[in-house]
Design a protein around this nucleic acid. Structure first.
Lengths: 207, 207, 207, 207
DNA sequence: AATGAATGAGTCTTCATTCAT
DNA sequence: CATGAATGAAGACTCATTCAT
């Protein structure tokens, strides 16, 4: 009774309960394998209640997806303010990214494996997000070139793509598929692998 | 009755017809979107006939998948006989790989997007294949180190993983998602990006 | 609390609000197409409130139906006091009836198209009302015979039925289905058609 | 085994079984009250089988409706060849019609009471059929005028409509609602009622 | 008294799989 | 062997009704 104040929260809560349950299920299984009933059960609500908050399974999936994607894309949006070096920024990204996939384990499956047909809308959105991501990383690299951290003849887009692949495929598979307990040390190694290709050779830096 | 002579051939043919039809369909759409009827129709056989050769849709998918994966893995199995350099071998791989994905366009979606739950079996098999692939690439790199083409302090496994990601994610997305008409020139750039990280710095080679 | 004074009125009003809303909706659409929510919205009350006043959707439909039927049957209940002629009375009925269906257009669909099963009760009630209607019309016709307006050998019940059909089917369909703008002139024609069958032939009247 | 010859019939039979079952059910109850399962059961087939032959419940309803309507409209399509009189033709129609509704009892409910929303298509079709029916009857009446059987100043369309109402509402309700065992004698009376309005007065015929 | 969030029974529909021919 | 008609389990979704506030 004294809880009248968070009545509105209540609403939000139920919706969130369902969304969370959906995320959990969609991360676990295919769009088609996940049954609305399961989600409702996990959320602790009735089947019909799901439809009070989401108009369809598809809709619910889209929201689940966006929610996850939002969290994920966050990782790459570091504040690159001038005192920072591009190198430091990229290190931060890799560390953040690793942390995220370690924490959420299977989450990334969702982002890059699930593409239910007919959700063209979502497909487009994903492409856009990826494009934006590459653009941001390209910007970061360009900045780095200006600062003299990297070769000026660099194809920044390609380098950005490789950096993304390093994070997503290399790190992703090591952690999620091969269950390798990647630590800072290996992260360094990996970044060095990448860096010594795009930065002015460290051998020359002292020069 | 007059066709008794090639009965066995017939069998083989029917099976292959069905398998090919299945591959085509599974490459086009989701596991759940592909209907057995479609496959039967495309194969020019009756729906029941599919079940003469494959015990279930799942089974048929597994075989389709394996078939495609086999073709795909081929790409990475270049003959690295000593006269060759590791660099040349890797170039060959990249070229082959690009050619394959360009030719088959959407086909690779299958390999990296489709993971129908309950196909744990298949998941395991994929993991094994990928493991083997990484091993082979690692071997190639080790050979390169011996030949003095690459830094001796290289973490070969990591380098192998990055090479794989370069092929699969970077090239794959450029061609299949972003519809970029990747040409030899860009391939060179990409490889250089990768190489100048793992090889002894070219600046030093002349030394 | 400050509204205590018109509580009873409120009640009556609410009930009527809901009933009116229900009538409007049921006249617009199928029993099954009308949703309780719609009615509540139109009535400007909460969904739950509907159930305060009507025990079920069916109940609400029954009341809506009766309400409409009441209005409708009114049309046929003209005051036939002796100075009047039967002919004049029937003319009045036809005019009233036409006016009613013109004013309410689609409304009468309700009365003659909707018969949700399980509403046996309602079915019975309708039968009774129709029976009564026919009886009244028969009485009117008998009166007319006495007054010498009509043939004495008339089967009054049948004539009453035909008169009803003239009003309901002929006029109804012309106005509601075929969108014919029926005017007094046509009404006369129609009545003549009917009359010259049941009345003593006008050719003889002067005789 | 010796029944190979009517294999094709078999197909037709199953479809017909289902259609007949559907007709029976739809005549008995509302579109929304009839469950596909019921129809399947009555037809003695599995639920899925219904969908082998009809793409949806709506589709099945449409076909059921058309089937019934076809039978019904037949009644009004008598061969009016010149030796015949219009009067005789109309008598034939009334007799046929009465016979039909007596035989099929509830069938007509379907035709004139059921109008599931969203089946606009069907609604249109019904209107067309009714229009055509009125036209045909109008033609018949015009012919009668030419033959001197009826008044030349007759509004044929209106007369046709009244004749239709006589059949549908008057006869229909007597038989179907009021369970009156209408016989030839009453049919005559009814027709006389109608006729003495539109025909040249019988009182004059002898003249 | 009034409300509307929560519910789940009840339906249509799909499609992998079977099996009689 | 080959077939495709028949099947029914399974699942998304609707909406009248309830009940805690």
């Amino acid at each position: 009774m004294p809880q009248a104040k968070n009545n509105k929260n209540q609403n939000g809560n139920k919706r969130e309960q369902i969304l969370h349950a959906a995320v959990e299920k969609f991360l676990e299984k295919d769009f088609y394998q996940v049954k609305i009933t399961e989600i409702a059960e996990l959320a602790g609500v009735g089947k019909g209640t799901v439809y009070e908050y989401f108009s369809s399974k598809e809709e619910l999936f889209k929201e689940s997806f966006s929610y996850c994607a939002g969290l994920y894309l966050q990782t790459f949006k570091i504040n690159f303010t001038s005192p920072h070096s591009a190198r430091a920024a990229m290190e931060e990204i890799v560390v953040n990214h690793l942390k995220l996939i370690k924490e959420n384990r299977n989450k990334l499956h969702l982002l890059f494996n699930e593409r239910p047909q007919n959700l063209k809308e979502l497909q487009t959105w994903i492409l856009e997000q990826r494009r934006e991501l590459i653009n941001e990383l390209s910007g970061l690299l360009s900045e780095g070139i200006k600062l003299g951290e990297m070769r000026s003849d660099l194809n920044v887009e390609m380098a950005a793509r490789l950096f993304l692949a390093l994070n997503q495929q290399v790190l992703g598979e090591m952690v999620l598929l091969d269950n390798i307990a990647v630590e800072e040390a290996q992260l360094k190694e990996l970044l060095d692998l990448y860096w010594n290709g795009i930065g002015k050779s460290s051998l020359w830096q002292g020069h």
